[in-house]
């Protein structure tokens, strides 16, 4: 698959301070998570991709377009939802989204039609004639999403999309991101502090720390790889049970009090565990997959 975002030694400086240092990565996932602590350079990376910040060294390509040479063409392909409040208070949502559509190049009438469509799509259909200044925080987030997708971008950049949302609104935002991902017409970059949001929506994750890439992983692959870790809590003769599992290719370690940790071989089916336990009249009190969560990955990356 052709990379969506390709960074080749990208560095960005503000005066004497280097904000991004020699970033090299090729991201091609449908949804890409951008993680990092405050001051890691996430927002600067987004602003660089959008052409707001000049590059001091290296290069960056989006869909094969150089962001320095073809900024205008690139911006036509990108939809951006900023982190902070960004709207025009004395405009109705439909006027605002329509204007943003027109600025992206949509003709007058098409922009109006698209504005209605996307406002209904994000769930602001009933409130689309209200002034944006009267919107709640959650509604403003949705209006920002609407303006970002009105022109049908190929790359959607969402900077903290669930910022300040209550749980139902957050769920709604996550659902919208998943739905847009499934349409297959756009790639999405999600920049968030909330690991759960990234874990729920992203296929790839890039972790930044102090302007450097400290970890890149394909979450789908990690999930598949870590599926083999299992923790068991048993009552009965766990030594014999562990021996039987070892005979089937599992790596078992007893941690005492009937607890077992094991790594399952690639082709191993979980029903074998239940079968062996039943044959030995062994009670299984607890069974859970132990896999690295994104939080584990993030914390490891931060410690590196």
């Amino acid at each position: 698959m052709d990379p969506v975002i390709e960074l080749a030694g990208l560095s960005v400086r503000f005066g004497n301070r280097e904000i991004l240092h020699n970033l090299r990565v090729a991201l091609s996932g449908r949804t890409i998570g951008l993680l990092g602590p405050n001051g890691a350079g996430k927002s600067t990376l987004i602003q660089t991709i959008l052409g707001f910040v000049p590059i001091s060294a290296g290069s960056a390509n989006i869909f094969g377009h150089d962001i320095r040479q073809q900024t205008r063409e690139l911006r036509a392909l990108i939809g951006y939802m900023p982190e902070n409040d960004s709207f025009i208070a004395n405009m109705t949502a439909v006027s605002f989204v329509r204007m943003m559509g027109e600025l992206a190049g949509l003709p007058h009438d098409a922009a109006l039609e698209r504005a209605h469509e996307v406002l209904f799509y994000v769930g602001l259909g009933e409130a689309r004639y209200r002034l944006l200044g009267t919107y709640s925080l959650g509604m403003k987030q949705l209006a920002k999403l609407a303006q970002a997708i009105v022109h049908g971008p190929r790359l959607l950049i969402l900077d903290e999309p669930t910022n300040g949302l209550d749980p139902p609104a957050r769920q709604r935002m996550i659902r919208l991101i998943k739905e847009m991902k499934q349409t297959g017409s756009m790639h999405i970059v999600v920049c968030s502090h909330l690991l759960r949001d990234v874990e729920e929506t992203c296929e790839e994750v890039l972790i930044l720390k102090q302007g450097r890439i400290v970890h890149y992983s394909n979450l789908e692959e990690e999930r598949r790889a870590n599926k083999r870790f299992v923790e068991l809590e048993t009552v009965g003769d766990e030594k014999d049970f562990a021996g039987a599992l070892t005979a089937l290719g599992c790596e078992c370690v007893g941690t005492g009090l009937g607890r077992l940790k094991m790594v399952l071989p690639a082709e191993f089916e979980l029903r074998e565990i239940y079968r062996l336990a039943a044959e030995r009249d062994l009670q299984l009190r607890r069974l859970n997959y132990r896999r690295d969560t994104l939080e584990d990955i993030f914390l490891k990356a931060m410690e590196a």
């Binding site: 707001f52 036509a76 990108i78 900023p82 960004s86 025009i88 600025l103």
Partner: peptide, 12 residues
């Protein structure tokens, strides 16, 4: 209202 990024993230 912080609307500048919205204008300038477009081909504008």
């Amino acid at each position: 209202n912080g609307a500048m990024p919205l204008y300038l993230c477009r081909p504008f």
